[in-house]
Amino acid sequence: MTVAEFAEKYSMEVLSMPEPAREIKGGYMGDLLSWVMGRAKADQAWITIMSNQNIIAVASLVDVACIILAEDVRLEESIVENAKAKGVNVLATKEPAFEIACQLSKEI
């Protein structure tokens, strides 16, 4: 399933979607950035509650399909602009991380 399809199906808010056609091929959940860089794989959806500027660099380097912000976490506008500039998809939802992981598991 693509990031755009997943966002639409689960009514997620799209904060940044420069690459809507990217396929989601798994998921990783975590807030400690070095754990994410050590363990997450390319093309996974990364579920997190972390919201500082560094998540965009981490997402870009790990090459995840998208960031999914859980629990209604929001980003500052400058971070959203940075995500768009770096080609990083960012979705947001009120759902907790566990629920998002359950949604993902149905689609991959």
Binding site: L32, L33, S34, W35, N52, I55
Partner: peptide, 15 residues
Amino acid sequence: SLGFGAGMGLPNMKR
């Protein structure tokens, strides 16, 4: 608080 400092930096570099 920024999500770093988990003690994984150098191990990741080696990995």
